[in-house]
Design a protein around this nucleic acid. Sequence first.
DNA 1: TACTTTTACTAAACCGATTTAGTGTTCGTT
DNA 2: AACGAACACTAAATCGGTTTAGTAAAAGTA
Lengths: 343, 343
Amino acid sequence: MYNKISLKDIAKELNLSKTAVSLVLNNKGDANNISRPTQERIYAYAKKKNYKPNEIARWLSLGKTKTIGLIIPRISDSFYANIASYIERRAMEMGYTVFFSSSNEDPKKEATLIQSMFSRQVEGLIIASTQKNHAEIKYLKDNNLPFVLIDRHYPDIDTNFVVVNNYSGANRITKHLLKLARKRVGFITIKSDLKAMKERLRGYVEAIELHTENHNELVKSLDYEKFESQMDESLSDLIFFKKIDALVFSTHFLVRAGIRSLKRLGIEIPAKVAIASFSELSEFDLVNPPITVMRQPVKDIGNTAVDILFSELNELKDVKTMERTKKQRVLEPEFLIRKSCGS
Amino acid sequence: MYNKISLKDIAKELNLSKTAVSLVLNNKGDANNISRPTQERIYAYAKKKNYKPNEIARWLSLGKTKTIGLIIPRISDSFYANIASYIERRAMEMGYTVFFSSSNEDPKKEATLIQSMFSRQVEGLIIASTQKNHAEIKYLKDNNLPFVLIDRHYPDIDTNFVVVNNYSGANRITKHLLKLARKRVGFITIKSDLKAMKERLRGYVEAIELHTENHNELVKSLDYEKFESQMDESLSDLIFFKKIDALVFSTHFLVRAGIRSLKRLGIEIPAKVAIASFSELSEFDLVNPPITVMRQPVKDIGNTAVDILFSELNELKDVKTMERTKKQRVLEPEFLIRKSCGS
DNA sequence: TACTTTTACTAAACCGATTTAGTGTTCGTT
DNA sequence: AACGAACACTAAATCGGTTTAGTAAAAGTA
């Protein structure tokens, strides 16, 4: 295998001790009085044999892995894939490797992954949680394990987190549509316990309730597993019976299904119904018309999460036991106004 | 940290040896005559203290990590993100964890990652290479390290690989457009040494050369770093001077830029120019008109790669030194005909 | 010359598991 | 009563590094 040759092999071959070889190869030769000629012999032989230290053994003795873990609901979701790529970049700059894995929105699998990541000695974890692992997160916190929650947090547990202001984002979208003189703005979301989703709904509701009575009938909550098949019915009800002239989608993948439905129903965007989306797909500007979107600050989420995690790791080194104050960031999304809501 | 408690701690506390505890916790208690009461004491104490074995130590002694690595050009590319998610799923089924990382198309970084993955004791590697690490790949092969190339392979090195038939895919697209009575079919690609790209071009050329003289002037190769800014000029040249009435894009991200350009130029699809894409974005059916696409069998690529890697790992166990015959798969892409090429 | 320092190393413990080769009791059998 | 087998464990080596505490020999100093 890659590590055909070990420290011991080198030591034996050169008639030296493992210690000497290890010191030299870790650039501690001078500091430990290993003579120059000996150092050179070691370097030369190591290079010749293409010696690579066995990282596992090294971690075992150092207790350091230079690795952090990232758990996301799914990598196939471009939102998380993009966050992952920024996290990876930032971590790489700090000399760290990122260990990804996805929970597929399954709390049990998430719990397993958290355990497995830590038992694989990641130094810290960034988690976009299913939000259904209360006990597990509490456990991490109580045991002073370094972690940062992103995108989804547990409001009643005091942890580090980086989230987006879902309330204000949805609120701004709705108000924008109302300002464009749309009279009846509908809202399509998925049934979900995720706080993000609830907040988006709240943002919508608090904007619309000042303008529209009976706004409850303008909201449709679809099932996560079958929103595609439910979309036609929900939309025709909203459009033909509830007479909406604008529509907010609570998340990107709903938009994909929504536009497909609107096409099938022959509804023109934005003439008949204006639409806007919370959360973005990189193709939203290609669609005809291009989709107005409240874009989540993906890069910022990733970078901030890494920075918080590293500051946490550093503090841990200094203050062992003390409870640290948690770093909590609520980032504002960015509003990209396009044709789909009519100028 | 997570491993506050070690085997030794348990052994000391219960007045037993590390051996006994280890055997019991690995379900080898019965086979090694550890008495039932003792076993129960150990289980109870381990559970009470929430004992988790230190995976690193375990790997060190077992030499097994139950981990494979995956190196891709970039996670933010949905094509690779999707492959990654299928690979992860399949590996998980086999009890393995996947270690992702992206090279960002940089051969040096790729080489570093390969080394670092193996020194982190992954058992095998799946690589979508930059195709510029000839020496490194040769090294892996010569040292009998288990790996599978995906999407991109080295034609002159005999390795395991799973790739797509780029030639036939591009050829079929082009022929399809010609069959629809399009007279002049252009081709937009990026300047690249990647074999995949060359093959797609070849597929196009071999279809068009039977119908069109001077087809060379219908091909535009853009720079990877600035294709977006070059798109307008290339397209207007093709359309206004070379009089194309159909256009094949060699890869998905070119389509995004291409459609933007066509919109700016006020060109109607497919009336004025029919378009089709090699490789897919999940929003291609949302665009107006929906984009005809030669879809790469992403799921199949991922699953096949994992299966090949595992069969490799198993063979390695049996036959230590012998040269194994390489498993090489060329998968056919799937043609999804949509409105963008005019029915 | 005698004593201290410096130089150039090494032995051995350690990290936390797994595993081989025992060891000391107890039991059953003849 | 004596012997082998079964039982219930344990000591110690091992994986491949890092690191602490030494040691022997040479050089420097009083």
